[in-house]
Design a protein around this nucleic acid. Sequence first.
DNA 1: TATTGTTATACTCTATAACTATA
DNA 2: TATAGTTATAGAGTATAACAATA
Lengths: 164, 164
Amino acid sequence: MGKPAQISAETNWDAGTAVRDTALSRLVGYNLKRSFNNIYVDLAEALRPFGLRMITFTILTMLRENPGIRLSNLAAAIDMEKPNMVSVIDELSARGLVTRSADPLDKRARQLHLTADGLKLQHQAYAAACVHEEGCLQHLDEAERAQLIALLSKIRHGADKDSR
Amino acid sequence: MGKPAQISAETNWDAGTAVRDTALSRLVGYNLKRSFNNIYVDLAEALRPFGLRMITFTILTMLRENPGIRLSNLAAAIDMEKPNMVSVIDELSARGLVTRSADPLDKRARQLHLTADGLKLQHQAYAAACVHEEGCLQHLDEAERAQLIALLSKIRHGADKDSR
DNA sequence: TATTGTTATACTCTATAACTATA
DNA sequence: TATAGTTATAGAGTATAACAATA
């Protein structure tokens, strides 16, 4: 396709002229960014009543399933840099949702745990997140949702494998 | 040991203990964020040799298909705030990749165009982006990629409809 | 020497308010 | 009055270097 001197004829952009994005639409990366942003903004709104952001919600949920995990292990598990994790844990700790306790096996390490309040908030927020997902994905049926998650995690774990 | 096992038994987190994320894995939002980040970091690396980031690459590609488009229309098309668009156009303009010219129909507006250099760079960068996608998606066959894009744009356009 | 948690720092991305010149 | 482009600014999110205590 080396010929067409001009991609398209000159257009009047005065009114609501339709904008083309066929080239970008072919790229999975572009579609991922756009649809992620749509869901992300919406999820942030769903979590705001609980005083949570996506990252704090993620951490509370991870702590529920992995009580006592070390900060560095948790950071690695969700692809976050340790220094950034520290400040978020500071925030959750100051709110009384998470505790840092001594690790008997390694004096350098700290065990992270949910408090009773943290567990309660995680329950509520997770329920809200599920309701939110329902709203975002109402145009997808059960099979499509499962397919989407399967394809996305295939990308994730494929990339994991490659980097090692 | 010998304690009322809460969510899960107490674990020793000293070594490379496996971390669980079954609750988060069920959420499309979480999977989207993780897989987007994987692709994004990698794509950024593929574009770096051209001096481009994802946003500048996106704009060059949009200008190729929509020559003469106004700044605000372009910003709306890719869900970007106008003030942020201004500084990126400044950057591309300073590098001689994009021009701002007067719009004969509206003295407030500026028409955005690729320069010859901009068009050339877009070509090269788009080819690199396609090669990069090939690397990221090598674990997905043609049908799965098409399916993924279809599902993602279903989320995008479903959300568009809902917000109006 | 390597690793855990930490501090400090910087850069990108994103979001909002307000100004100007036109419409 | 509303809109296009712009300026200034602030907040998330992310990334790196370096340090003290411990392994």
